[in-house]
Every structure is written in structure tokens, then in C-alpha cells.
Design a binder for these strands. Structure first.
Length: 324
DNA sequence: GGGCCCGCAGGG
DNA sequence: CCCTGCGGGCCC
């Protein structure tokens, strides 16, 4: 096999991953022979999360409107013409868009009301699991997990402070040399970015390329405090993460982890970053994922392991598996 | 699909 | 008030 070209970036990425791997091994979190689980969920573009509800609803929702046959078939904005394809309903017109929209809105609202309480003005920050949102709970957006209190910041990946530590964090990709073994992972700190632009070209960004070293402040400091206190950190994984444990869509609460170690090193940008190792706390509900059967050396693309979001634990608000 | 830039929650 | 951030919607 001819050695194919490896870009300097890729070379550094592999080197950093090797460093991360060595540290996980030194902590006894992975063995020298353990294989990094490969991503099974295919990478796909995030769904357009429109406010308006698409006519092409999951089967469960459509059944609710059975009998409501409307001759005036609407066409939604994308030009999709609703037709009913199941044997039972073949040939019948779909209910009107307005009817579907109303029913679905009401159902979603009713479901939300049982799960989400009104958010008080000054709710306290808490460690550990949030009642009503067990391991495996799925959120469509960061805003929903904020309302639930599972991970409160709407953009930032780390929630914490310098006196209590870190309450929660989100793995969302964006740092391509991090490793995710499910039971443990490495996580890059925050900061080192220029979000305001220059004086000549001012900006108002929420994210930007790294342009300076990270510092041990804010979220990074919070995580270092958590390493001392050993308090549990709530962990969510987001759809943008590139690992074997990535949810297909949205965000999934994956349980409590503890911070085992951190260090300062050169990130992929060339600027300094803080790296953290977290590992799953024992004595909690089992993780919401299933690993591929052992013996598979993670090269086959055969889907031995269907998507993790099919594993029943998730409390979906909209996305049921489609039966037809 | 990529670039731009907004509201938002949280903390100082 | 200020500043920050592993979102996200919109426009091209």
C-alpha cells in the first residue's frame, strides 16, 4: 500500500489523539488493546428545524387523525403533497395541514407540560441528575435542555463556576482530536477565540477560530475545581459530535461523569488548550447506548448496531420511528 | 452548503 | 450594565 498523503493538520490530529489515548491508558480507563468504537450513525446534515410542522408526520401522529378526511388537500411549503400509502389508508386524502398542525401542536404542548415546569427566575444550580430527566433523555435543542435544567447555557459547552465546580457539559464536536470511548472521553476547554473581531472590523460572534491560548478561567477553571471535589458532572452528547456515541439528532443526556485529570497542551489550531478526562460514575442507570457485538473489529460497515436513538430510553417529543 | 450575526442564559 | 459561549436561523 502506497503511503497516502497526510496533511499536517491530520498528522497533528493523530498525534494529539495518541497523546490523549496514552493518558486514558495511564489512568486505567482503556486497555492497550481496546479498540476505539467507530461511529455507526452516518454523518448527515442536521435537519432544518422549522417552527412550522411538516405534513410528513410519524405514523403514530397520523393515526390520531384517522377519519378526518379532508378533500382540500394542502401542499406544504416544500411542495410535498400528502398522500397516504399504508394499505389501510391507501387512496384516502390526508387530513388538512391545518388540522394536523393543530393536533400536533396540542399534543406536543401537552407532553411538554408534564415534563417542563415553568422556569423560575432564580433557580439554583444543582449537581447530579435532574428529576424527571433520566439518563437517555433526548432534547431537540439546547434551549430545551436549558429549560429542563440539565444543561443551562444555550451556547456554552461548560456550565460551572470557580467556587462549586462544573454542573454540566456538552460534547458537540468542534475539537477533532478529542477521543470518545463512551465510558470515558477527553474534552477540550473553552476560550482562546476572538469573538469581537477587530476594531476596524467588529463582530458579534458566538464562535470563531482559536486565535490565542486558552486560560484556566471560567468553564476550564470550573472543571479543574470538579477534579478536586470529585462532584459528578452531567454530560450531554450532541448531534455534531463525531463518535460512536453520537445521537442521530438533537442532544441526549448520557449520565454523570467525574473529572479525572486535566493538562495544558498544543491544540490543533497551534494555540494552547486545556484537555480534560472524564469517566462515567458507577452506580447509575445504564448508559443509553449499545456497543457493537464483540469480535467485530469495527471495520465492517454492516449495521450490527442500529442507531442509539432507537434504544427506547429516549423521551422523544417528535421523532418516533416510522412504522409502515 | 457556507457565511453571517442574532437572541439568549449565565456570570461578573 | 458588561462580557462570554461546542446554537441556530436566515440569507445568499
Amino acid at each position: 500500500m502506497a503511503g497516502r498523503y497526510i496533511s499536517p493538520y491530520e498528522e497533528k490530529r493523530l498525534k494529539n489523539m495518541e497523546e490523549n489515548r496514552r493518558i486514558l491508558e495511564s489512568l486505567g480507563l482503556v486497555g492497550p488493546d481496546s479498540v476505539k468504537p467507530k461511529r455507526v450513525v452516518k454523518k448527515k446534515a442536521p435537519l432544518k428545524r422549522k417552527k412550522t410542522i411538516h405534513v410528513h408526520m410519524p405514523a403514530k401522529k397520523v393515526i390520531l387523525t384517522d377519519g378526518l378526511v379532508d378533500e382540500q388537500v394542502d401542499t406544504d411549503q416544500d411542495g410535498f403533497t400528502p398522500t397516504r400509502r399504508s394499505a389501510r389508508l391507501r387512496g384516502k386524502a390526508a387530513p388538512s395541514l391545518q388540522e394536523l398542525r393543530t393536533e400536533v401542536d396540542e399534543e406536543l404542548e401537552a407532553e411538554r407540560d408534564t415534563r417542563y415546569k415553568p422556569v423560575p427566575k432564580d433557580r439554583p444550580n444543582v449537581f447530579g441528575e435532574i428529576p424527571g430527566f433520566p439518563v437517555g433523555t433526548w432534547f431537540e435543542t439546547r434551549m430545551e435542555s436549558c429549560r429542563a435544567g440539565v444543561h443551562r447555557p444555550t451556547v456554552a459547552g461548560i456550565h460551572g463556576n470557580d467556587y462549586e465546580g462544573c454542573y454540566s457539559l456538552v460534547l458537540s464536536g468542534g475539537y477533532e482530536d478529542d477521543l470518545d470511548y463512551g465510558e470515558c472521553f477527553t474534552y477540550t476547554g473553552e476560550g482562546g477565540r476572538d469573538l469581537k473581531g477587530t476594531k476596524a472590523n467588529p463582530k458579534n460572534l458566538r464562535t470563531a477560530p482559536q486565535s490565542k491560548d486558552q486560560t484556566l478561567t471560567r468553564g476550564n477553571l470550573a472543571l479543574s475545581v470538579s477534579m478536586e471535589t470529585r462532584r459528578p458532572v452531567r454530560v450531554m452528547r450532541g448531534y455534531k459530535l463525531d463518535s460512536a456515541f453520537t445521537p442521530e439528532e438533537g442532544y441526549r443526556y448520557d449520565g454523570l461523569y467525574s473529572v479525572d485529570k486535566f493538562w495544558f497542551t498544543a491544540g490543533l489550531s497551534g494555540f494552547g488548550v486545556y484537555k480534560f478526562v472524564l469517566s462515567r460514575c458507577p452506580d447509575q442507570a445504564p448508559p443509553p447506548w449499545t456497543l457493537p457485538a464483540s469480535g467485530d473489529n469495527s471495520d465492517s460497515d454492516t449495521d450490527t448496531n442500529k442507531a442509539d436513538s432507537d434504544s427506547g430510553v429516549s423521551m422523544t417529543t417528535g421523532t418516533e420511528t416510522e412504522a409502515d
